[in-house]
């Protein structure tokens, strides 16, 4: 086995990033952001509402949370579906108790399969974010431009028609993209997406159809990641959320507003033994002065008004 000398050629070795999507920017050197009413933290709660098809393909990769047992996988299919039947309603109830209007990222097929669930979320005053079509349809560079465009179009059309909302936010299944995804999202009137995990503030992303905003979504304190990838207990999750909040909150004294994102899954935080920890986390965050909880599109609008 040998490697061609081209393996030692680095065509994107230059100042800044090795792609054209966004420019390098130091979080601590930016013009400070001020959230509405002088808030220091914009709290962005994003609940994932997902459908894992029984026949989901393994190629080119499975989105996290995917069915793992031999077909037919009764175990995980039904466990994930629990979130859509009960779990999500527990989360909705906690959010209603606190009077919060937040974002729900729905696989589009959920709107078709469970219209009553969609209605409950919309009537709760929450924003619908498009979370692709279903968890079996990941976006990747093996898709043709046309196929991916059709997938995005189908997902957005379904959610827009069924929810009556503009649906301008996007979260790819498994946070996976192709080289074309940001361009296609912008072409379909998506204003912002959650897939990239590189910042604690929104930032602008270039596409061939104009700008797209990248919104923070805290990968490593996501309830599913902490529970199912790190195997940490619920109190340990709570501790990490509090620690995360404390540091971001402290930074706002010097560096301007920050986004505290709280990614949730209906089939994780909506479990009976877990939901009290969600309440604890929200109580802790909301006990601080200057926390503004809003659907993500409002956070994006507030950000765009300042840059």
């Amino acid at each position: 086995m040998s490697m061609p000398d081209t393996y030692l050629h680095y065509s994107a070795r230059r100042y800044g990033m090795d792609h054209e999507r966004y420019e390098w920017s130091d979080l601590f050197q930016r013009k400070p952001i001020v959230w509405p009413n002088g808030a220091r933290i914009a709290l962005s709660v994003v609940t994932h509402v997902q459908h894992f098809p029984l026949d989901m393909p393994a190629k080119p990769f499975k989105a996290p949370g995917a069915l793992m047992m031999p077909y037919p996988d009764f175990r995980y299919y039904t466990n994930r579906d629990y979130g859509n039947r009960l779990g999500v309603f527990r989360i909705l109830k906690v959010l209603a108790e606190k009077g919060l209007h937040t974002s729900f990222a729905l696989n589009a097929v959920v709107a078709e399969r469970y219209p009553a669930l969609l209605k409950a979320i919309v009537e709760g005053g929450h924003e619908i974010v498009a979370h692709g079509y279903d968890m079996g349809k990941v976006h990747h560079s093996g898709l043709t431009l046309e196929a991916e465009s059709a997938l995005i179009d189908q997902s957005l059309t379904l959610l827009r028609q069924k929810s009556g909302q503009a649906v301008t936010g996007w979260l790819s299944p498994g946070r996976a993209q192709s080289f074309n995804t940001p361009d296609l999202l912008a072409a379909h009137a998506v204003r912002y997406c959650f897939d990239w995990a590189n910042d604690d503030l929104p930032y602008g992303m270039a596409t061939d159809q104009g700008s797209l905003v990248s919104m923070p979504l805290a990968y490593e304190t996501d309830d599913r990641v902490v529970a199912d990838e790190y195997f940490h207990s619920e109190p340990e999750w709570v501790q990490q959320i509090k620690d995360r909040f404390d540091v971001l909150y402290r930074e706002t004294e010097t560096y301007g507003g920050r986004v505290m994102s709280l990614p949730l899954h209906s089939w994780v935080s909506g479990m009976p033994y877990r939901v009290a920890y969600l309440r604890e986390v929200l109580d802790y965050i909301l006990s601080h002065q200057g926390v503004w909880t809003a659907p993500s599109h409002e956070i994006v609008t507030a950000y765009q008004a300042q840059v």
Binding site: P60, F61, H140, A176, F179, D195
Partner: peptide, 10 residues
């Protein structure tokens, strides 16, 4: 994942 693995990259 196939390039670009935007989650791990970012």
């Amino acid at each position: 994942r196939p390039n670009p693995d935007v989650l791990q990259y970012s």
